[in-house]
Simulated scan of single mutants.
Amino acid sequence: MNVERVISIANVVNDDLSQIGLVQRLQELQNALANQINSPNEGNLQMVGQSRKEVMAALERSNFDYLPTTWRSSLEELGLTNRLGAGLASGLNDSFEASQSILTDVQSYVAVVQDDVSTIDEQLKAVASNLVAMGLKADHLEPGQAELSFLIPRDAIDNGLTKLAKEISFFDKAVRAFSEIEEGKPDAPELRQLSTTDPAIFALVGTGTVLAFLKIVKEIICVIEKSYKMREARASAIAAEMDTEIIEKMNAQIELAIEQGLENVTEMATRRLDSRVGRSKELKNAAKLYIGGLAARIDNGFQVDGSAVPSDEEKEEQMLDAEDERGHQITTSEEVNTISSEIRFAELPEESILRLAYDGEEEEGDQVGTEGA
């Protein structure tokens, strides 16, 4: 795990806990439960209900579940995944529902949770402080910078360096191709970090390219979600022992929907090439190739994320917009971060839905996106 990113995670989680006041809310819930246990009455019971609502409201305000998907392996390694955010909310609700009138059991559970959250808060502060004291700095983007990250499931590469190198190469070539489509020239992604728990690549890329790439990912996810619903309908038809001809027709419709869906993504991604000459045809072919490869990977557990920090010019635009009666105009950086949040909350099935092969399929485009590199 990259220590600079550990500092960033620690700082983000500490800030989040402070902003939502979770430790205090849990203590208030614990006190309310104690009051009702020691002196049962309607007023104290209402305070329990109110305190519980405030804890849940705090967890809903938490940004923990909005952290980059490519941080998830680090969060798991730090043991934080189910101890904060939605995981904690689910545990608290389960405790109330399971115990119902046995409030002493609920109080015991809340006490454990409150102590655990306090420990997390204190330990992360200590970790960040000690690492900074050693001369290390938190990982963060500078104004005007944008990052793409690409998480590779370890079982997809069988712990093999050759397969890992191939996936890094795919990511590099895809970014170069889409940067040329978006910006008019290929932009070589600059490696910022390489995490090894589940291999994750963090690379600096132009903000416009990051936005274009994330839009592609978002549309691919939509294709997967639509295809999943169609496969569910087919499974129901099979369970109902419907006619074989109907099942075969549904199979054909699924395949057609996937094909057309990815074609639509390619059209969206290459729209700005329509007025260009030269490498336009080559880039369209490359886009189709890389979108197919990217779709197959996302469908098999690969994850793509991105983030951006507004440039000084964007910040100035935001200030001017705040004074303008026409209202705020969204910046490229803001759009990057908005789409990233949407992608992070996409819940895709564990099994492959598109069932596309991706081993070696991008070799045809090896030379695309390399000009000017």
Results as ranks from 00 to 15, higher is better:
residue 291 I to H: 02
residue 153 P to L: 08
residue 188 A to Q: 11
residue 350 E to T: 08
residue 365 G to N: 05
residue 336 V to C: 03
residue 183 E to H: 02
residue 357 A to P: 02
residue 7 I to N: 03
residue 154 R to H: 09
residue 123 Q to H: 10
residue 211 L to G: 01
residue 18 S to I: 12
residue 88 L to F: 05
residue 104 T to S: 12
residue 109 Y to H: 07
residue 144 G to A: 11
residue 88 L to S: 01
residue 318 Q to E: 15
residue 126 A to S: 12
residue 265 V to W: 10
residue 71 W to L: 06
residue 365 G to H: 06
residue 97 E to R: 09
residue 186 P to S: 13
residue 80 L to D: 01
residue 6 V to A: 13
residue 16 D to K: 05
residue 93 N to E: 14
residue 72 R to G: 05
residue 18 S to P: 00
residue 29 L to M: 10
residue 125 K to N: 13
residue 250 M to H: 03
residue 13 V to M: 04
residue 29 L to D: 01
residue 354 L to P: 00
residue 265 V to Q: 04
residue 283 L to G: 04
residue 94 D to F: 14
residue 16 D to Y: 10
residue 14 N to I: 11
residue 94 D to R: 10
residue 81 T to N: 03
residue 316 E to C: 06
residue 354 L to E: 05
residue 69 T to K: 09
residue 250 M to A: 14
residue 70 T to I: 09
residue 23 V to I: 15
residue 178 F to G: 00
residue 265 V to A: 09
residue 258 I to V: 15
residue 127 V to T: 07
residue 56 M to G: 02
residue 292 G to S: 11
residue 266 T to M: 08
residue 368 V to C: 08
residue 322 A to D: 10
residue 259 E to Y: 13
residue 17 L to D: 03
residue 55 V to W: 07
residue 272 R to L: 15
residue 107 Q to K: 14
residue 177 A to S: 07
residue 288 K to R: 15
residue 172 D to C: 05
residue 315 K to M: 15
residue 163 K to D: 12
residue 219 E to T: 09
residue 163 K to R: 14
residue 335 E to L: 10
residue 299 D to G: 06
residue 234 R to S: 08
residue 173 K to A: 12
residue 78 L to N: 02
residue 35 N to K: 13
residue 205 V to A: 09
residue 86 A to C: 00
residue 58 A to F: 09
residue 43 G to A: 13
residue 181 I to A: 05
residue 287 A to K: 01
residue 217 V to Y: 06
residue 160 G to S: 15
residue 197 T to K: 12
residue 61 R to M: 15
residue 301 G to A: 05
residue 3 V to P: 00
residue 158 D to F: 15
residue 220 I to F: 06
residue 18 S to D: 13
residue 301 G to T: 08
residue 333 S to C: 04
residue 127 V to Y: 11
residue 127 V to M: 12
residue 347 E to K: 13
residue 113 V to N: 05
residue 126 A to I: 06
residue 128 A to C: 03
residue 237 A to P: 01
residue 196 T to D: 07
residue 7 I to P: 00
residue 341 S to M: 14
residue 42 E to M: 15
residue 102 I to M: 10
residue 266 T to Y: 04
residue 37 I to E: 03
residue 133 A to I: 03
residue 135 G to F: 10
residue 112 V to P: 00
residue 304 V to G: 02
residue 51 S to F: 06
residue 88 L to N: 01
residue 37 I to A: 04
residue 319 M to V: 13
residue 148 L to S: 05
residue 242 M to G: 04
residue 271 R to Y: 14
residue 61 R to E: 14
residue 303 Q to D: 09
residue 252 A to D: 11
residue 250 M to S: 11
residue 162 T to F: 15
residue 241 E to D: 11
residue 291 I to N: 01
